[in-house]
Design a protein around this nucleic acid. Structure first.
Length: 606
RNA sequence: GCCCCCGUAGCUCAAUGGAGAGAGCAACUGCCUUCUAAGCAGGAGGUUCUGGGUUCGAAUCCCGGCGGGGGCGCCA
């Protein structure tokens, strides 16, 4: 927020150094890292090292030399508008703001910008974020939830940072897993259909477990059992063949059951406040991807080994001219002419580039698929798409359970819906004792916001490359570094503002002066608020929602401390009280903006 | 065999190559007649796995080792 002052000082430093023939290194600025101190800082260690290398000046060790330069620079800077004083400490130059001016500037900017405070300037590139790619005929578990939460937070961040953003979902609606569910449904449960969108979706997942048990090879099978199992498998294969051939009965069965899953998915996304712009389906890119294979063969990117009884492959390293193995070789068409995951991803990328004119394509996908995506990007490059350079795989560690990996085949999963229901139940329990005055009809809604806040924050406050062992007690914890902690700061700010009006004092919208001695808690809070726009840009540039999650906690933390140290409503001096109320309004706004980017809702009371 | 990720307080995790390596949880000490205690304040807790190297400066970058996880042609 204070580039102007920074730039002015920078110019003075540069002028001084060139006048005195000092080999100034690039100036990198950072906030002064001590609490309650407000300003920005840079160091002269690199410059001192440069000087030493050139054999110039005295032969002081670098830290002392840096301090010497800092002192000289300090003497040269003199007074700058809005800067209270400058210090040279341990090789650093610390520039301190004049608190009253800056407090007013920060608070005014937040209140004038409102929901747009922190929004970046419009960028020219269009970004697509692909996430929420569960398979149909299964149910949405906590691992899918991590994917979706991560993708949504990223989309919100990138969008707020200034990029035109397209959200895309890509459900896997074909393949053997899908056919397996259809097979057992058709064989044993035809005509049945549980009530309720989630119940029906989850039922399909149960059928999958049952089918897998029937089809799986077991130890010590009798000849009869083997024959039975093989007969089942033949039925399933036959169904797959019919699906592929476009058989009307099988296709219809597929459409109906697929829709059950999609209905559940849409409801889950609604629960997570996710609004997709584009829906891609695996089944829709299946045929187009076959055409692509021919094109790649013609362009001599792919090698057709079918005449020799093989598949169609791409020798990626060889085609890229790499001598050491990196992308290796992969198959893009089976020998029987059917497509693979990689084939379909190529077709999908083509659609993204050509139909949606995407400049930057982000894939939020499990880290285990890293090689496959790198292979896809490499083939896109060979194919001649310049956007291939800006394809980015945002991998994330997988979510497992304390008892081991989740397994859809064995039905050992934690369903998102179950966790969400449990979250509401737990919050309601806390609420009934802590906030008995909240009307019952509002309670459930607030409980949902808080419960989801806890769950979402627990997913976002861990860096994406780390695996998570899902522990529901940790995920739904409301104490300490959690979503509810941040929501509570928002609620407290809201409560004070409400009360200030109840007591008959309209919130003064005129800018306040802050020309009193601010407590260190106020200074720290204002400084945190002023960093919000930077946090947005950093999180978006690094594709890391964690940056925003950490920021939101720090901001809430600064607010809670201020809340306890300073009683605003009992402030005697009216102008000081008014300034503080404006600071609270600015805090509330910034917390709200940060929570929104994290896909967490901010309740007015809790 | 090759490639990727990780190793930081008892536990779970942070830390654009920069100033006391920080939070939360657990345990300990205080604080509700006060704007909501889902909170605040305080103390304790560290050879940043290990050995080298680069650098004025390394948890961070490079090389080796140890330990854990993942991936490597017709699954997704």
């Amino acid at each position: 927020m204070f580039q102007k002052e920074q730039q002015l000082i920078e110019e003075k430093i540069k002028a001084f150094c060139s006048a005195n023939d000092i080999a100034l290194a690039e100036l990198k600025w950072q906030p002064i890292p001590f609490s309650g101190e407000w300003g920005f800082a840079t160091s002269f260690f690199q410059t001192a090292a440069n000087e030493a290398k050139l054999g110039k000046g005295n032969k002081l060790p670098a830290p002392q030399k840096a301090q010497e330069i800092a002192e000289q620079v300090k003497a040269q800077i003199g007074s700058v508008d809005g800067i209270s004083h400058v210090e040279a400490v341990k090789g650093y130059l610390n520039v301190y703001f004049k608190t009253s001016d800056y407090a007013r500037r920060v608070v005014d900017e937040v209140l004038n910008s409102g929901v747009d405070f922190g929004r970046g300037v419009k960028k020219s590139e269009r970004v697509m974020v692909e996430y929420a790619q569960p398979n149909t005929h299964h149910s949405f578990h906590i691992g899918h939830a991590r994917n979706t939460i991560l993708g949504e937070a990223l989309a919100r961040l990138v969008e707020f940072a200034g990029f035109e953003t397209i959200r895309a979902s890509y459900p896997g609606d074909l393949g053997l897993g899908v056919i397996t569910v259809m097979w057992i449904y058709d064989k044993l449960y035809k005509g049945q259909e549980p009530e309720g969108v989630h119940e029906r979706g989850q039922w399909l997942a149960k059928l999958y477990v049952e089918a897998t048990a029937l089809l799986e090879k077991k130890d010590n099978e009798t000849p009869e059992e083997i024959a039975q199992r093989e007969a089942y498998d033949a039925e399933r294969r036959e169904m797959y063949r019919k699906w592929d051939a476009g058989d009307e009965y099988v296709r219809n069965l597929w459409r109906v059951t697929r829709e059950w899953s999609l209905e559940e998915l849409r409801d889950v996304l609604h629960m997570l406040d996710v609004k997709m712009d584009v829906w891609f389906y695996e089944s829709e890119v299946d045929e187009p991807s076959k055409v692509i294979v021919d094109e790649l063969i013609k362009k001599d990117i792919a090698t057709d080994e079918r005449p020799n009884g093989g598949a169609v492959i791409v020798k990626i390293d060889e085609k890229l001219g790499l001598t050491k193995e990196k992308y290796r070789t992969n198959v893009i068409l089976r020998r029987d002419g059917t497509t693979l995951y990689l084939t379909k991803d190529l077709a999908l990328a083509k659609v993204k580039f050509e139909k949606y004119h995407v400049d930057r394509s982000i894939y939020v996908v499990d880290v285990r698929q890293s090689l496959h995506l790198q292979q896809a990007f490499a083939i896109l490059k060979l194919w001649g798409f310049p956007q291939a350079e800006k394809c980015h795989h945002l991998g994330y560690g997988f979510v497992s359970l304390p008892e081991g990996a989740m397994s859809a085949r064995r039905g050992r999963v934690v369903l998102f819906k179950d966790v969400a229901d449990e979250a509401v139940k737990r919050v309601l329990l806390v609420e009934s004792e802590k906030s008995a005055d909240i009307p019952a009809e509002e309670r459930e809604k607030i409980a949902y916001q808080i419960g989801m806040g806890a769950l979402i924050y627990s997913m976002l406050s861990v860096d994406n490359n780390k695996d998570i062992v899902f522990d529901i007690n940790e995920a739904l914890s409301f104490d300490g570094r959690t979503g509810p902690y941040i929501q509570n700061a928002y609620v407290r700010a809201n409560s004070i503002l409400k009360k200030s009006k109840v007591e008959g004092r309209k919130l003064d919208l005129r800018p306040s002066t802050f020309n009193y001695e601010l407590t260190k808690h106020e200074i720290e809070l204002i400084e945190k608020i002023s960093h919000f726009p930077n946090a947005v840009q950093q999180a978006a540039a690094e594709y890391r929602p964690l940056i925003m999650a950490a920021y939101a906690y720090d901001l809430a933390n600064a607010f809670h401390s201020f809340y306890h140290a300073v009683n605003v409503l009992q402030t005697e001096d009216e102008s000081v009280k008014n300034a503080r109320l404006r600071l609270i309004a600015a805090s509330k706004q910034t917390i709200a903006n940060a929570l929104r980017l994290l896909d967490i809702q901010a309740p007015d009371v809790m």
